[in-house]
Structure formats: structure tokens, C-alpha cells
């Protein structure tokens, strides 16, 4: 609720997720939630707190540790009239259920000539920075964006966490909502009403005149910090939070590059084969004549995420990595 001064309400990222799930459960009688430890325990990160109490065990299910079973359950239930909200605790567990995701969920409608509809919302947590090592820290959005039939979104703020989950649940397609574990405690303005953040629409989070940084997830915040540092060297960087990775808002990115003439794509995922390559290719295809420099890319080194905090912090890209890359791209000294 807004306080007496009518200041907009603040909510943490984790509570915004919680509110979004409640909203969806209220709005959609055919929605149910299923996942490991989401009922009694409220989820390992707490974003299901109180949801089973509110909606009951008929609509909120603690499942066995069976990721293939969970996603398959969602496919079958969605194809026959339900609107499942599935939980995959860590995106790293995608490996356990990739057949259901890649070969069933993504393709069923197409293979069946458009006769099947799969309104599945799959929530999952990504990102490094918590010393959880190689199997609990990955950013695997590129795996998913390579699969026609899926939509993939990534929330960088509490408001978008709520809006994207609601949008995903209202969509008649399978949508994977990737959330960031290092942002869970982030506070931000979150409207109280029910709203959908449009899927397929990027958000210009910092307008700028002569440099474009396209990014998503936790790196949005790093890019904003980097932009502030770059401002001291006379660069006025525009930061675009892509938000929706599939479909991707090429239009907003190209319009920005036409204005700024220089661009970078920054993500936390491994740089090689990451989605940054696709975005860079799109920019050079559509705005080649507008570019004053090759499109730069920032991403993690070609290695799994290491455990030791000293290795992990050197591994994960951040504002400094972005600034250093901009400087080397533009040959700025100092």
C-alpha cells in the first residue's frame, strides 16, 4: 500500500515474484503451481511463501525431485486445458528436463500443425555470485533462445519480475521466466495492481546519446554503474534492458545504435556462443552504416563457474569489465 505521502510502494524482487504468482492464481482459475519444496517450505528462495496456505494443496503442489516429470506434467496439463506455473529451482537443472523443454514443450504446437496450445509458465533462477559453484550458478538463456516455440524473458527489477510473470501466465505460449538469485533482496517500486510487462519490448533504463549498452538480468545494474563511470570520460551511454530475449526487441536496439553509433552487448553468460553474438550480428546486419566501431561483447570466460570467491568474482563480468571493454573498443586511454 502507498504510504501517507503517496510515495509509490517499494517491494523486494522476491516479494514481487510472490505477488505475481498470487495475482496469477487469483486471475486464472485453471492455474496451478508445481515444483520442489514450493508448498510447505515456500520455495528454497522463499518466493512461494504463503501461497499454498492461500490457494490450498489442490492448486499448489510440492512435487518429488523429478524435473523431467514436472515439466512433462506441465506439458500434458497445458495441452488439456490447465495453465501450469512450473518451478525449476535453478536453471542449471534444465539438463534434467531438457527433452521435455526442447522436444515437447517448444515443438508440440508446431508439430501438431497448430492444434495444441501450451500456456506454460516456467520460473527458474539463474546467475553466479553466491559461491554455489559450477552446477548452481549458470546463465543458460542462450540454450533456450535457440529453441523456436519458446519465449524467454529475464527480470532485472522487482517491477519487471512481477510484470513479466503476469505476462508469461497470460500468454498462450510457453514462457520461461529467468530470475536472478543475486537480485532477490533488491528493492524497487512495484505497482500494486495487476499489470503485464509486454513480452518482446525492451526497456531503455538510462537514456544516452553516444554509446549503447544492450544487456539483461543482473548486468543491467552493472551497466548503469558502468555508464556513470563512462560519463566522466565524456561518454553518454544509453543502457537498454532487453528484458525479453525471445522474442527480441531488435527495433529499440537498432534505433539506439542509429543515434549513438557505438554499441556493446553485455551478459553474465559465457561470452562464446552467448546471445550477445546474435545481438551483435543483428546490429551489424541492420545498422552497419551507422556503426563507428565494431560491436563489443562482454561475457564470462570460457569456463564453468568456479567455486572459490576469488575466482568467482574474477570470473563474473561486472561494471569494471564493461568499462574496460568500452575503453579498449574505443581506444580510450587511462
Amino acid at each position: 500500500m502507498a504510504d501517507q505521502n503517496n510515495k509509490p510502494r517499494q517491494l523486494t524482487y522476491v516479494m514481487a515474484i510472490n505477488e505475481a504468482i498470487r495475482t496469477v492464481m487469483q486471475e486464472q482459475p485453471n492455474a496451478f503451481a508445481a515444483g520442489e519444496d514450493i508448498g510447505g517450505a515456500g520455495g528454497v528462495y522463499g518466493y512461494y511463501n504463503g501461497i499454498q496456505e492461500q490457494f490450498g494443496t489442490d492448486r499448489v503442489y510440492d512435487t518429488p525431485i523429478s524435473e523431467k516429470g514436472i515439466v512433462g506434467l506441465g506439458v500434458g496439463a497445458a495441452a488439456t486445458g490447465c495453465r501450469p506455473i512450473l518451478d525449476l529451482m535453478f536453471i542449471d537443472f534444465m539438463g534434467e528436463c531438457m527433452d521435455e523443454v526442447a522436444n515437447q514443450l517448444a515443438k508440440m504446437r508446431y508439430m501438431f500443425g497448430g492444434s495444441a496450445t501450451l500456456p506454460v509458465t516456467l520460473l527458474t533462477m539463474a546467475g553466479a555470485g553466491a559461491s554455489l559453484a559450477a552446477q548452481h550458478s549458470q546463465s543458460l538463456e542462450a540454450w533456450l533462445c535457440h529453441l523456436p516455440g519458446l519465449k524467454v524473458v529475464m527480470a532485472a527489477t522487482p517491477a519487471d519480475a512481477k510484470g513479466l510473470i503476469i505476462a508469461a501466465a497470460r500468454d498462450d505460449n510457453p514462457v520461461i521466466v529467468i530470475m536472478m538469485k543475486t537480485l532477490l533482496a533488491l528493492n524497487g517500486e512495484v505497482p500494486e495492481d495487476s499489470y503485464a510487462t509486454p513480452i518482446g519490448k525492451a526497456n531503455i533504463v538510462r537514456p544516452g546519446e553516444n554509446y549503447t549498452i544492450v544487456t539483461w538480468g543482473r548486468m543491467v545494474h552493472e551497466a548503469i554503474t558502468a555508464a556513470e563511470q563512462l560519463a566522466r570520460s565524456g561518454l553518454d551511454a544509453e543502457v537498454i534492458d532487453a528484458r525479453s530475449l525471445q522474442p527480441f526487441d531488435t527495433e529499440t536496439v537498432i534505433a539506439s545504435v542509429r543515434k549513438t553509433h557505438r554499441a556493446m552487448v553485455a551478459h553474465e553468460a559465457v561470452r562464446y556462443g552467448g546471445l550477445g553474438g546474435e545481438v551483435a550480428a543483428q546490429i551489424q546486419e541492420l545498422a552497419f552504416d551507422d556503426l563507428d566501431a565494431p560491436v563489443a561483447r562482454v561475457g564470462a570466460p570460457f569456463a564453468p563457474v568456479p567455486f572459490s570467491p576469488v575466482l568467482e568474482s574474477a570470473y563474473v563480468p561486472n561494471a569494471e569489465t564493461i568499462v574496460a571493454e568500452v575503453r579498449s573498443q574505443l581506444r580510450i586511454e587511462g
Binding site: 559453484a133 559450477a134 552446477q135 567455486f307 572459490s308 575466482l311
Partner: peptide
């Protein structure tokens, strides 16, 4: 044992025939 790359969830030692703790259940 893993040069700091694995931590608790991946602790292992091939010489002892210990093929790893595992972060993936199952």
C-alpha cells in the same frame, strides 16, 4: 582437493576412487 574450483558440493579425489560429491540430485 579441487584447487578451489569445486567446493563442498563437488569435493572429490580420483586417487581415492571418490568420483565426486554432486550438485545435481540423482
Amino acid at each position: 582437493y579441487c584447487k578451489g574450483k569445486g567446493g563442498s558440493m563437488h569435493i572429490s579425489n580420483m586417487d581415492l576412487g571418490m568420483l565426486g560429491a554432486n550438485g545435481i540430485v540423482g
